[in-house]
Amino acid sequence: RVERSVEPPTERPGERRMAEMKKLYGAEAAKIQAMEAAMQLIFDRNCDKKQPKYWPIIPLKL
């Protein structure tokens, strides 16, 4: 499994993420975040269910 974010432990990741989203998307931030979260959920569920491995094992390009 891929561990994505590397947040400093002193910050609350959710808040920081929302601030970042606001900066990028302004008034639409919440909507975009909801769409991303929904897709991420599907991805995570699929991974739990199917336990996929990376293909190819070694990246073609670094």
């Binding site: 199917k50 073609l60 390009k61 670094l62």
Partner: peptide
């Protein structure tokens, strides 16, 4: 994430 072959799932890296 994409199935490859039969009943196999694989993860493709966007960089690849």
């Amino acid at each position: 994430q994409t199935p490859l072959g039969i009943q196999r799932a694989a993860l493709l890296r966007s960089g690849d």
